[in-house]
Amino acid sequence: MKFTKMKKIDTEKLISCPYCEAVNIDEGKSIYCRRCKTKITNTQESNFHTAWAMVITAMIFYIIANIYPILIFDKFGHPNGNTIIGGVIALWEEGEYPIAVIIFTASVFIPLLKFILIIYILINYKKPQKGSKKIDQAKLYHFTELIGPWSMIDVFVVAILVGVVHVHSIQIKAGIGATAFVLMVFFTMLSTLSIDVRLLKESKDAA
């Protein structure tokens, strides 16, 4: 009984609500989830121009965050800037290998990986893809979503150091790089919000 009923629904038109995961029918225009009543952005409504603008802005902030110091050490009136890469190299030279690797992965590698994936989605959104390649991409995307928060490590480290090192002889201040880094994270988030990430796995060989 249920089986025959299910056949009547066009499976290609079913989409899952990103907020509550209820299955909805995509009629093409604006859809409001039948369960949680939230507006679902579907493929037709994805704003690719906005997404491109946001991801390019994020990349510019990424470059600024890597050029300018995120932390300024001021020892006896001699300010000394620390960039992200400079900090990683210093940790490596001091023999703090695991922490150098963590910082490098979190601050340099994860944001780059996210840019590549978002650009990949934006370029390929019209080309349908099949089979296991599709699953790999989707898994990779969810993996970056999962590790995304860890890119905030360096910002928190700066905040902690600024918070606790406050004596006359040594002063620690945040640098422009830290602000740029936070803005980079923010714009990366906006770019994924303006597109439908389900594009990554469009056109299924219907089950």
Binding site: K2, L14, E21, V23, N24, K134, K139, K201
Partner: peptide, 12 residues
């Protein structure tokens, strides 16, 4: 009927 269905978040 739709309530008996689920779409996998990872592979759709």
């Amino acid at each position: 009927d739709l309530d008996h269905l689920i779409i996998c978040r990872h592979c759709q």
